Simulated assay, not measured.
Amino acid sequence: MNKIQVLLSSYNGERYITEQLNSLSSQTQANWTIRLRDDGSSDRTWPIIEAWQAKFADRMFSEKALNVGVIPSFFELIGQADEESDYFCFCDQDDVWLPEKMERAIDRLSEVEKDVPAMVFTSTQLVDADLNPLGIWPEKPLKAPSFYNALVQNIAVGATVTFNRSALQLVRSHMPDTNRVLMHDWWFYLCVSAFGEVLYDPEPSILYRQHGNNAVGGETSKLGKLKKKWASFRKHRGSHKLVEQAREFHRLYASELHDKDKLQQLEWFIAPRDRFRQRLNYLRRSKLYRQSRIENLLFRFLILIKYI
């Protein structure tokens, strides 16, 4: 039977983590384990974890560690993951998984040859703090998941992502500088889309709780979506973080990226564009895209004004 391991990073999650752990134990996929790293919680999260582990001692491996932040914490889990497992799931502490989440993900990934890095992600059922439904998010991608999208946009909600052992090995073979990674799920989307297959399932697999303290949250209203997309661009400005993440990928994987078109698009994206003419020439050649026409127009405009 296929074995699946859940990678869960917790931090001050005493209010919701019991519901999440209960939803993991209620999965229709029976052969699961949990690798949990507590990122230095100062509330009652750790005692809750200890009590839960006493109940599921043969299935759970947990560690109370120093606070390093969400991205390094998940990469610690990636490094610790059990390679005897066939599949792996990212998990947040404050959601609720629908009962068939693991089973559905394994069914989809089993369509891919085992030696091909592969991941599947789904939409979510947005809910409020009390699990009242708010809508489905995100909507089905308008364009196919691909490396050309992953360089400039993440469409894979991390808490819905499941990946195979080959994808784990791909990422573990060249662990990145986490200061140059925008998010662990985005890094997987980038790596797997470069070398393997990215699958999408439109049926929600989790109740994605929105409570004001989400590291990343969803949005269903048109105005809210626009604000969120603009905030995303502003967040990624800094030291040109989109390009910085792409440069880190190039540093680690360029010598293994044998698809000449992908490599060329990557190198054009990370090349300096100090002059306006250089930026115009880049946009004429670029195949990179975001998921909507408005987002693409905004992306091209921000390239032209050297925002990205």
Rank of each mutant, 00 (worst) to 15 (best):
63 E>L: 14
60 M>N: 05
100 E>F: 03
42 S>Q: 14
64 K>I: 09
56 F>H: 13
81 A>F: 02
76 E>A: 08
84 E>G: 13
63 E>N: 09
84 E>I: 06
79 G>S: 01
95 D>H: 14
62 S>Q: 05
96 V>R: 11
62 S>W: 06
86 D>A: 12
31 N>F: 04
75 F>Q: 08
93 Q>P: 04
72 P>K: 14
60 M>V: 15
59 R>W: 05
96 V>N: 08
98 L>P: 00
76 E>R: 11
77 L>M: 07
54 A>H: 13
38 D>L: 05
69 G>F: 05
56 F>L: 02
73 S>G: 14
74 F>A: 06
94 D>V: 14
36 L>I: 15
91 C>V: 11
71 I>V: 11
47 P>N: 02
52 W>H: 00
80 Q>R: 11
89 C>K: 10
91 C>I: 13
82 D>R: 10
34 I>V: 11
84 E>A: 14
79 G>Y: 00
24 L>K: 11
82 D>G: 12
26 S>D: 13
54 A>T: 14
32 W>T: 00
86 D>M: 10
90 F>Q: 07
94 D>Q: 15
64 K>L: 15
74 F>E: 08
42 S>C: 09
102 M>P: 00
55 K>F: 04
28 T>N: 10
70 V>G: 02
39 D>F: 05
77 L>R: 03
97 W>V: 02
49 I>E: 01
53 Q>D: 03
93 Q>T: 07
26 S>T: 15
84 E>L: 11
96 V>E: 08
67 N>H: 13
91 C>N: 15
89 C>M: 12
62 S>T: 07
36 L>V: 05
100 E>T: 13
82 D>W: 09
69 G>M: 06
48 I>F: 01
47 P>Q: 02
57 A>E: 11
34 I>M: 09
81 A>V: 02
31 N>L: 04
81 A>C: 05
88 F>V: 05
47 P>W: 01
95 D>L: 14
64 K>Q: 12
69 G>S: 07
96 V>C: 14
47 P>T: 03
65 A>W: 09
25 S>N: 13
91 C>W: 07
51 A>K: 02
88 F>I: 08
32 W>L: 03
40 G>E: 07
40 G>K: 09
74 F>R: 11
77 L>N: 05
92 D>G: 15
89 C>Q: 15
70 V>K: 08
73 S>L: 01
25 S>A: 11
94 D>C: 14
33 T>A: 04
51 A>E: 04
59 R>A: 06
29 Q>I: 03
62 S>F: 07
77 L>G: 04
56 F>A: 01
52 W>L: 00
98 L>K: 02
32 W>P: 00
100 E>D: 13
31 N>T: 06
72 P>M: 12
39 D>L: 08
53 Q>T: 07
84 E>Q: 15
26 S>C: 15
32 W>H: 01
46 W>Q: 08
50 E>K: 10
68 V>D: 03
97 W>G: 01
80 Q>G: 12
62 S>I: 13
76 E>S: 12
100 E>A: 10
46 W>G: 05
91 C>E: 12
